[in-house]
Amino acid sequence: MEWIGFANYAVFMAIFICIYALLSLGLNIQWGFTGLFNAGIAGFFAVGAYTSAVLTSPAADGRLGGFDLPFWVGWIGAMVAAALIAWPIGKICLRFRSDYLAIATIGVAEIIRLVIKSEDWLTNSARGITDIPRPLGDLSYTMSQLAYLGIVMAILLVAYLMVERQIASPWGRMMRAIRDNEDAARAMGKDVPYRRLEAFIFGSALMGLGGALFAHFNRSITPEAIDPMVATFLVWIMLILGGSGNNRGAILGVAVVWIIWSLSEIVTDQFPHEYAVKAKYLRIFLIGLMLQLVLRFRPEGLLPEASGERKPVGKPSD
């Protein structure tokens, strides 16, 4: 039946949108609220995916683990691992302008890619890690898809509420102050590199969680599962188009870009083979062009950052 296939596809897309939304929220903390340029999103994503895979998959010969732990341990582990990678990088680079962080995060993502591809004992290199358990994964196909969608939506909602609360708090105000006028914030006695480090680690942990959710959704993870440049860039265009500095915008941007991206893939897959390969690169070209157009004509994005005073969270309005 046609509509069941369609509904299954819609659920599949919705799960991906939720996973990318976590990445986009993570980037929003780093870029939108703090002004940090992370060009290695795919690296933190991969660290999260592999950490959770190693922690939760059943024991296997020839590589570390698996430790067969419950999925939530894997997810927490993914966040911790991504944060642990972010910490030294942030520590070294956040004293300087964000350009240095951009270069360093490109480097980190590249090193992570090399490690994943070549360290047999850790990641099973090219064959990847399989048999990653999916929570509620033993239901029928449609039901387990729906159940997983429910789980990722719940996680996204919790993450969204936490980030919203954090951003509306004095901490969030301080972060925007640092982003908008570093010197003034420093003059007010704020420890700028330390605060930036907090935001960088916090955002990276969310990216790691996104990676873990992806690995459990696919039930496997291989080095080829995700194209690092394209994934990183997609998250960037999602956030910029949606509206950096606005969490709802960050999520809206994900939905818009992911739907365009997936539908364009369906269209180009209909082409004869020799054109289909070229069309893949044409899509990448157009997504790059889209960023240029948004930066030039609508830099504030679809849902701009709220300006002016926000109502403080947790205080009665007086």
Binding site: G35, F37, A39, R97, S98, D99, A102, M229, V230, F233, W236, I237, I240, K278, Y281, L282, I284, F285, I287, G288, L289, L291, Q292, L295, P299
Partner: peptide, 24 residues
């Protein structure tokens, strides 16, 4: 006239675009 980091971002997009042209 915008913060320089915006141009860094634009250049990341240009990198992707130029490479896509080469691949095409």
């Amino acid at each position: 006239e915008r913060p320089k980091i915006v141009t860094v971002m634009a250049s990341l997009g240009i990198a992707l675009m130029v490479r896509a042209i080469v691949q095409m």
